[in-house]
Design a protein around this nucleic acid. Structure first.
Length: 377
DNA sequence: AATTCGGGGTA
DNA sequence: TACCCAGAATT
């Protein structure tokens, strides 16, 4: 027997355990599930939207975005026809902006190449950008009743505790184990509800820090509970530490009062904050803050912008999961009578927008902070 | 196998 | 603070 198979068999559920776990979990879910807007809707497109939004994003955060999205893009055709700019506007603030771009592109593929029908199988679903193993399983089981499992962070934790599985939960061997166990366990008669029940248990009972085991419907089956320290499982994932980054940002303003206009630049579609707008920003990867000011000055001059002396707005720190970004912010006024038509020297699209337009523009949380600094000053 | 993608909830 | 969230793509 291969090592992998050995490990798998060591943790495998017996047929009786499977049966008992399914019944207990489904019964608990029926009584205790949270009422969420994407539950029991039967619309594959809406399920798809919800699952993309829920990637690495908590339920409470998603709900408002989900409602706004389906109001604006009720069908996959509506989304496929939409402008990228409108798509990004509705996604702004949710993070991982690639998800919005892929969802938009995949909607077009579904409409143009799949007859407008969301695919029903895991294989076909995974062929779409932005849909990986988890999301494919979720859509197939929830929207189409395909008896396939899902493994997300919740399921990893629940299974780790049920079977006392140690080691890095993201390691390949453990991932194969989770998928095998989830595949054995999933109820073929109610795969959607079963998968959601596993995740619901992880989200509300079998939580990372202080699980409420006394309310758990499957604690009799849980090895970690029997051992007495359920939080021993799973092992804490090792995370990449935040790299430092320093940027200089300039709020360039033309006009006053109602005529006030802000210079904004659109970031390239790929990479960090892809497709979002920002105030002109230069990056100093080395973190040598002293050089940022001069670089920014040069950049604006190159763009043909004659400005007043900068008004220092101070510094702020913005944390991403993988970056600790120090933002040196300043404000400048344009000296000329008219704003230039564009700023052709910028590599990316630019625009001059009013304060109201700025509010609706897809911008990152970091840039909102810069705007707040400007408004205070 | 490791890194790159946000932003916010929570203890 | 540190951890984690209904992960996927890329290198």
């Amino acid at each position: 027997m291969s090592r992998t198979a050995e490990i798998a068999s060591e943790h495998q559920f017996s047929a009786d355990e499977c049966d008992s776990l399914r019944r207990a979990l489904l019964s608990w879910y029926a009584h205790h599930k949270r009422e969420l807007p994407w539950r029991d809707i039967g619309d594959p497109y809406a399920v798809w939207v919800s699952e993309i939004m829920l990637q690495q994003t908590q339920v409470a955060t998603v709900i408002d975005y989900y409602h706004r999205w389906l109001e604006r893009f009720p069908t996959v055709e509506d989304l496929a026809r939409a402008e990228r700019e409108d798509v990004m506007e509705l996604w702004a603030g949710l993070g991982y902006y690639r998800r919005a771009r892929f969802l938009h592109e995949s909607a077009a593929v579904v409409v143009d190449e799949m007859g407008g029908e969301v695919p029903r199988t895991v294989k076909q679903l995974k062929s779409l950008k932005g849909i990986g193993p988890y999301t494919a399983g979720a859509i197939a089981s929830i929207a189409f009743d395909e008896p396939v499992p899902v493994v997300d962070g919740n399921v990893e934790r629940v299974l780790s505790r049920l079977r006392a599985i140690s080691g890095d939960p993201k390691a390949t061997a453990n991932q194969k184990l989770y998928w095998a166990l989830a595949g054995d366990l999933v109820d073929p008669d109610a795969p959607g509800d079963f998968n959601q029940a596993m995740m619901e248990l992880g989200a509300t009972i079998c939580t990372p820090q202080s699980p409420t085991c006394m309310l758990c419907p499957v604690r009799e089956h849980c090895i970690a509970f029997a051992e007495g320290e359920p939080t021993e499982y799973p092992a804490t994932a090792k995370r990449t530490r935040q790299r430092p980054m320093t940027v200089g940002t300039s709020v360039v303003v033309f006009g006053t009062g109602r005529a006030e206009r802000f210079l904004v630049v659109k970031r390239p579609p790929d990479g960090l904050l892809g497709g979002l707008w920002e105030f002109p920003t230069v990056v100093d990867e080395d973190g040598k803050a002293s050089s940022v000011d001069a670089y920014l000055e040069q950049c604006l001059a190159t763009a043909g912008l004659e400005t007043s002396e900068p008004n220092d707005l101070g510094e702020l720190v913005h944390h991403f999961s993988h970056i600790r970004m120090t933002i040196r912010a300043e404000a400048r006024r344009l000296d000329t009578e008219e704003p230039p038509e564009g700023a052709a020297e910028f590599d990316q699209p630019v625009d001059w927008v009013s304060r109201d337009e700025l509010e609706r523009l897809p911008m990152s949380a970091a840039m909102r902070k810069v705007l707040a600094l400007y408004e205070q000053a």
